[in-house]
Design a protein around this nucleic acid. Structure first.
Lengths: 235, 235
DNA sequence: TGTACATCAGTGAACGCGCGTTCACTGATGTAC
DNA sequence: TGTACATCAGTGAACGCGCGTTCACTGATGTAC
């Protein structure tokens, strides 16, 4: 037995309650204990305070989600890249990459929202309640967002999706995508009637950012034009 | 006397406390009464519940901030547009507008963050605590964001900043800007050491979105190139 | 192998506290006649 | 103009409740010798 039974039960109960109300900071020690089917003060056998539990939950959430999210991108990149011919020139190489990026973005967003639907707790808790608990937790949440963004930037590099952009541009759009995606996620969960629209908006957002970065960074006009045209074309 | 003295005191106290803790939903009736220097239950003379107060505060925030934010954009657009020569062709007209848009965006962001610094409560409360109070309030907050976005889209139209873009594209980037700007605002308030960076990121974000929309929507290649070049050039 | 001891997860009772909410009350202001 | 009455903002005491936290306790598991 790696982690004590009661501790696991308490964590589980806290996550369940927090995702139900969307507000981690409104939870009480006694409420969590009750939900876990334990004595109210068993809590103190495992955690020094609610904040300590918050730290742990946030840690679990982030460390537990990073890899799956990377897997989603790996699958998307592989599916998108498989049928591409070998390019004959640098410009053609960029074009190939961008076509792959476009397909990968769409597949990733599909996969991402499916994942959100499967594990909504993570995303509801992450955004709303937890940060209000303490400045320390707010800082940790910012850190987590930074890590997720850097994962995304790494994947963009690894799968050679946007080689025409500078590292800085990639990092910058990765951060924007991660932050905005949190907002899209809560919309997605909270308003089931607009899910299709939310997916479209998210994809449009990503395409818009990529197009903007290419327009601002690719200096050769013909190359820029042809790259932008790839994004512009349907499908 | 338009609104009762006690009511005004209670609203003021609630705003003050909520902006201090960044969590409206954690406030208590007694705490608010104490801060206002009133008997705990005077609260019930004016509000049916904490949620009712939340609605009112949100209303006041939004209705009180819409006009000032529009004024900031009006000043920015006027300052940016004053020295532009009269254009001789449609393409030149778009170019003029975009130059104006670029300057206006920078000035607006300057003015906006100054405004955030002056009235941080609005932005701290808006984002974090209030939505957790109830689904009704969350809905109202979404509505408010929609209104602010539609104000922004209107101003872009009125000052003819982006006539090369479709209405839909303008509305779409306006919504993204407003949402992202809320996040930038809390960063701005909470981490004073990174304010310059946050301003730069916000401006970069807006420029990136505009460049992306132009790249994706302007069909004439030469026009698109020359417009993008305006955004690309320094200053 | 047996015994003594330490550690650990969990229990149940109890504490003092701030909470939301209700009640009966006061005093000031407005209003009908 | 004066009087009687209604309305309204605010008061102070009181209620029952769930809260965080502490205490002394139990029983199971592991460990030293």
């Amino acid at each position: 037995m790696d982690v004590a039974r009661g501790k696991a039960l308490l964590i589980e109960a806290a996550v369940k309650l927090a995702s139900k109300t969307g507000n981690f900071s409104a939870l009480s020690v006694r409420e969590i204990g009750k939900e876990a089917g334990l004595n109210p003060n068993t809590f103190y056998r495992h955690f020094a305070s609610l904040e300590a539990l918050g730290f742990l939950v946030l840690d679990l959430m982030v460390s537990g989600r990073r890899q799956p999210l990377r897997e989603i991108r790996r699958h998307a990149a592989e599916a998108a890249g498989a049928q591409l011919p070998h390019p004959n020139s640098p410009a053609e190489y960029w074009a190939c990459c961008l076509r792959k990026a476009k397909a990968a973005a769409r597949l990733t967003i599909e996969g991402y929202f499916d994942y959100v639907t499967a594990y909504p707790e993570t995303f509801l808790i992450g955004i709303s309640g937890i940060a209000a608990l303490s400045p320390g937790l707010r800082e940790k949440l910012d850190e987590a967002i930074g890590e997720l963004a850097s994962d995304l930037a790494d994947d963009i590099r690894i799968y050679q999706l946007l080689p025409m952009l500078s590292d800085e541009a990639v990092r910058s759009i990765a951060l924007l995508i991660v932050k905005q995606t949190f907002l899209f996620s809560t919309d997605y969960i909270n308003t089931p009637g607009k899910r299709e629209e939310t997916r479209r908006m998210a994809l449009g957002f990503v395409m818009n950012l990529i197009a903007g970065s290419i327009a601002l960074e690719v200096t050769d006009k013909d190359t820029m034009i042809s790259l932008v045209e790839i994004l512009r074309s349907a499908g």
